[in-house]
Design a protein around this nucleic acid. Structure first.
Ligand SMILES: NC(=O)c1ccc[n+]([C@@H]2O[C@H](COP(=O)([O-])OP(=O)(O)OC[C@H]3O[C@@H](n4cnc5c(N)ncnc54)[C@H](O)[C@@H]3O)[C@@H](O)[C@H]2O)c1
Ligand SMILES: NC(=O)c1ccc[n+]([C@@H]2O[C@H](COP(=O)([O-])OP(=O)(O)OC[C@H]3O[C@@H](n4cnc5c(N)ncnc54)[C@H](O)[C@@H]3O)[C@@H](O)[C@H]2O)c1
Lengths: 238, 238
DNA sequence: GTCACGCTGTGAACTCATTCACAGTATAGC
DNA sequence: GCTATACTGTGAATGAGTTCACAGCGTGAC
């Protein structure tokens, strides 16, 4: 099974969108329905499910609970993921709050910050420690994943320290490119670059009347699965 | 010139990393230096600069201020971008704060929220309006870009309303896949999927000893530009 | 019971992105 | 001045990722 980062990303959205359906409304789903739900092509959906060895029937499509289970088996770590947050600033707190409320399966079990205001407090169930306690806490709670939401200049130091103490993968919100030992995984989220794309392609849209014109095409630019747009206000669906 | 979303993303990080250098320290840079800075290959950097028609010299590499200017000319809208934020929650406020402080070139000129607590307040220079004022405000301030940070069920309605009133591109933090008219651009930021990738590849790293093993490879997994890692604590560089 | 339909599973084709590899060239050192 | 060097610019090769297109099949209609 050839597992790429994009496949994992799509599996994650397949699952999330399946779970968002009215529970029990559909226990079976066709590739083209799931595709519409997540904004992909039916062929890609079938290919992905084939890749993970999940098989449907031509008559009824794919079994929804079964698919969710299969994806869970693949993505969810057996013991549940213990995650550490470093930098309990505006962004860090938003993340703690959101995941605590809507995705408790991601267990943020420790936070770290330099600010004495934050240390000792508990944010959405996640206790904030001083940096000095990092080593002990990481090892004691067997934390394997980290989220970096500190100012850019602190990112590399913090990352190194995490990885030295058992953390094997990071989500990095900083524009800094982190140097990691081989084997460690870093997922960068660069919001400035994302906004820059929005501005660029939005501007193009204006100039060229439409993005599909001659020479430009973002991957999901012109997202429009046009079918549903003749109607007027596609009021909050799904 | 063939412009893809990935190119824009890289140009954005090229520029940001060039600007982060001690100003004036280097006025020239080689492709391999810039590549190391952003974690890409030298060949790709050269190809990108070629694509945007920026040319260097074999003797001294590329002119840094010139390159920054060239990228700005390409990415920055002439009048400055007017951006609207919808949903002044935890995430929305983090975004307003961050961009106001560190990237004021992205001008958040209006925010919208349903909560009476928020309406009328100013967040980091950005006034929060009631939803009823959306049409008027968008048109009056000629807002062409939007950021969606409302709960998922409100996302489609809000997006449609924005696009109906002149907004041409959106940054969407919601897991909802937005239906857009052709020509509009949507950039999705799916933090849950990103975290899921971190957990998956971090776990693999453990099992398989290292990611480059047999059959897996995330795009920037094993980010390690190993060169610099023999040394110990790569203390916050650049 | 038989037929037509519409879907899955999948090899092959294709498209897009990245890397290779090298010719061309400006400098630094001698 | 001449040579060795180390880089850029770029066509061509490679590689990933996606889509095409169709054989095979279970089901519902009649
Ligand atoms: N907020 C955003 O929208 C946004 C967007 C893009 C990038 N980022 C990145 O995320 C980072 C955090 O953003 P924010 O808005 O939460 O900033 P913030 O200033 O609100 O939070 C930073 C937090 O990190 C803590 N901190 C500082 N140095 C530390 C260290 N060495 N170790 C541990 N904690 C430390 C501070 O006490 C503070 O609580 C930013 O610096 C930026 O690089 C944020
Ligand atoms: N915070 C995160 O880390 C995170 C992570 C992933 C996704 N998201 C997405 O971003 C959204 C916002 O996250 P948050 O943490 O800021 O949530 P939040 O609850 O703090 O903020 C939501 C804000 O939207 C406002 N709102 C609600 N309905 C609205 C409407 N119809 N029009 C305008 N405003 C409306 C609310 O008043 C509130 O201020 C989430 O719902 C989620 O879909 C957030």
């Amino acid at each position: 099974m050839k597992v790429t980062a994009r496949l994992i990303e799509r599996l994650s959205t397949y699952r999330r969108n399946l779970q968002r359906q009215i529970p029990g409304a559909k226990t079976r789903i066709y590739s083209h329905e799931l595709a519409a739900l997540v904004g992909e092509t039916p062929a890609l959906v079938r290919r992905d499910l084939m890749t993970i060895g999940f098989t449907g029937s031509p008559a009824h499509g794919y079994d929804v609970p079964g698919l969710i289970a299969k994806i869970a088996e693949l993505l969810d770590p057996p013991g549940g993921a213990g995650i550490a947050l470093v930098g309990v600033g505006a962004l860090g707190r938003a993340i703690l709050r959101y995941f605590h409320r809507v995705h408790p399966e991601f267990r943020f079990v420790a936070a770290f910050d330099t600010s004495p205001d934050k240390v000792g407090q508990v944010f959405d169930g996640c206790p904030c420690h001083a940096l000095d306690d990092m080593e002990a806490t990481l090892r004691q709670k067997l934390i394997a994943f980290g989220v970096i939401a500190v100012p850019a200049d602190a990112a590399q130091v913090v990352a190194t320290r995490l990885v030295r103490n058992g953390v094997r993968a990071l989500l990095n919100f900083t524009p800094e490119r982190l140097q990691m030992p081989p084997g460690a995984y870093v997922e960068d989220v660069d919001l400035a670059a994302s906004l820059e794309k929005v501005v660029f392609f939005g501007r193009l849209g204006a100039t060229h009347a439409a993005c599909p014109g001659a020479d430009m095409a973002g991957p999901e630019s012109c997202a429009a699965n046009q079918d549903a747009y003749a109607s007027d206000l596609p009021s909050a669906n799904s």
